[in-house]
Amino acid sequence: MASEIVRNLRKDIHVEARSRTALNLTLSFSVTVTLAISLASAGARMSPGTLSILLWIVLFFSAMNGLSHIFVREEERRTETFLRLYSSYEAIYLSKLLFNVAFMCIIETAILPLFIFFLQIDVIHSAHFIAAAAAGGLAISSAATILAAMVARAGGRGSLFTVISFPVMMPVIWVAINATTISLDPKAHPSWNPCFFLLAFSGFIVAMSFLLFRFVWLDE
């Protein structure tokens, strides 16, 4: 199974590297939104709470922009039967999940420094800040994978992905905003609880997705 997952992942990386549209578009989107916020705020000092909200809104919508691609591409190019023939459901799901987690990492690595730089953010508790970003990103990409599979099977329209993802990701966004706010606040005492919550959420969603994936991808 592990070798199958690696094989799938390698295949996806090759395919994406040779077409590169998704990654480029998503990164462009993220950078544009971040700059838009910085320019529109015209140097105004914002509270930790406001900054966190803005950060997670940008991360959420960047995720909505990019994380459905890995499944929608298979449907659009009609390669999903080829994939299904030569790989098991479990391996397909897990390799797509790993891809999305990596994709989200790349998005965050692009957005966070820009955010900190352009909005002049003072990261007080940096370990907690990074942990919150990482755990939140993991949770978002975990939920996004199964939802992306559903959207791909439903015809792949981008706004549908956002509509169905938002209710499911709401807990993640709340907790992540909360954790990020605390890490930016000099007066607060941060705890690791929000990160544990996000990790638990990720684990739970991955388990549910693993069970449900074959129903989403099964042929009728």
Binding site: L147, M150, S209, F215
Partner: peptide, 8 residues
Amino acid sequence: IGAAYLII
């Protein structure tokens, strides 16, 4: 797909 979504 509807059922899977609702369960999640």
